[in-house]
Amino acid sequence: MPRIAYVDGRYVPHDSATVHIEDRGFQFADGVYEVVTVVNGRLADEEGHLARLARSLDELRIAWPVTPQTLKMIMRQMVVRNRMADALLYIQITRGRAPRDFKFPAKAAPTLVLTCRRTKFQSPRQLADGVPVVTIPDIRWLRRDIKSVSLLPQVLGKQQAVEKGAFEAWQIDPDGTVTEGCSSNAWIVTEAGALVTRPASSLILNGITRQSLIRLAAGLGIPFEERAFTLDEAYRAKEAFISSASTFVLPVTSIDGKPVGNGKPGPLGRQLRQAYMNHVGTPDPVPLPAENA
């Protein structure tokens, strides 16, 4: 079955979906986006993603192209029309079409595009073995809290990770602290057993999965510290993992070639992954392997 896209009020074949050459998203990366995971036909953490979308639009002073309630209806139509049980649903909103000029156009209707693509979640092997990450300097702008379509530093970082045989790249600020991955938030479990992730600020994207995990950790009574952590502290951690809409909770078992803890996924990460899957109301798409299997 051919994929279906949504462009400014029309459902169209994905291969023929287009926007104008003078759309400001193309010319200036003047736009924002969200990605919502579809798990067993259900939209995971939908309200959180829409709340962050609203914030990003507000920060860039871009108007809603449709009401949030209408957008919800379009999102559901995209899932139905594409007949995808497990997928990534992308929502992109730009300032719209206007003659090329840096300043905001006096009159421009925002462009709304939605696409949906089938995805495979983490393999049993990735959950059993964990994944490697490498570290790179953080060269992004200072408003990382806005989910902007301007992603060139992350593109370069992801390519470095691939070339080094890693799953993700953790970005390092000049002060030596870990900010986040190129498309994920970074977590460690300290030698003392505390769960740590960097606090939300303009220096990281406040992940929706991240926010859910913080609430879940509190409910489970897990010791938690929301603070910056250094790369050296990450090297010494008992556990590490990444979180995002598409990876949920994925264990990290090596950083820059150095094993994390005993080099195997740890129990706290497993516990949080299961808690998150329960939170979104669906069984884990990939059953958790036995501990240390």
Rank of each mutant, 00 (worst) to 15 (best):
D30E: 11
D30A: 07
D30M: 05
D30T: 11
G31M: 10
G31D: 10
V32F: 07
V32L: 00
V32I: 08
Y33D: 03
E34G: 02
V35P: 08
V35A: 14
V36W: 01
V38F: 09
V38E: 09
V38D: 02
V38P: 05
V38K: 08
V39G: 00
N40R: 15
R42Y: 05
R42H: 15
A44V: 09
A44Y: 02
A44H: 00
D45H: 12
D45G: 01
E47Y: 06
H49I: 04
H49S: 03
H49M: 03
L50N: 09
L50Q: 04
R52H: 12
R52V: 04
R52T: 00
L53D: 03
L53Y: 06
A54P: 02
A54Y: 07
A54Q: 14
A54H: 10
A54F: 03
R55C: 03
R55K: 12
R55H: 13
S56A: 10
S56T: 04
S56M: 09
L57W: 01
L57R: 05
L57E: 08
E59M: 12
E59V: 13
E59T: 07
L60C: 04
R61F: 11
R61S: 15
R61A: 15
R61N: 14
R61I: 11
I62Y: 07
I62Q: 05
A63I: 00
A63F: 02
A63H: 12
W64L: 06
W64K: 07
P65W: 02
V66Y: 06
V66I: 06
V66D: 11
T67W: 00
T67M: 01
T67S: 15
T67D: 07
P68D: 05
P68C: 03
P68W: 05
Q69N: 13
Q69H: 13
T70V: 13
T70D: 13
T70M: 12
L71C: 02
L71T: 01
L71V: 01
L71R: 05
K72H: 11
K72G: 13
K72R: 15
K72L: 11
K72P: 00
M73R: 15
M73V: 14
I74Q: 08
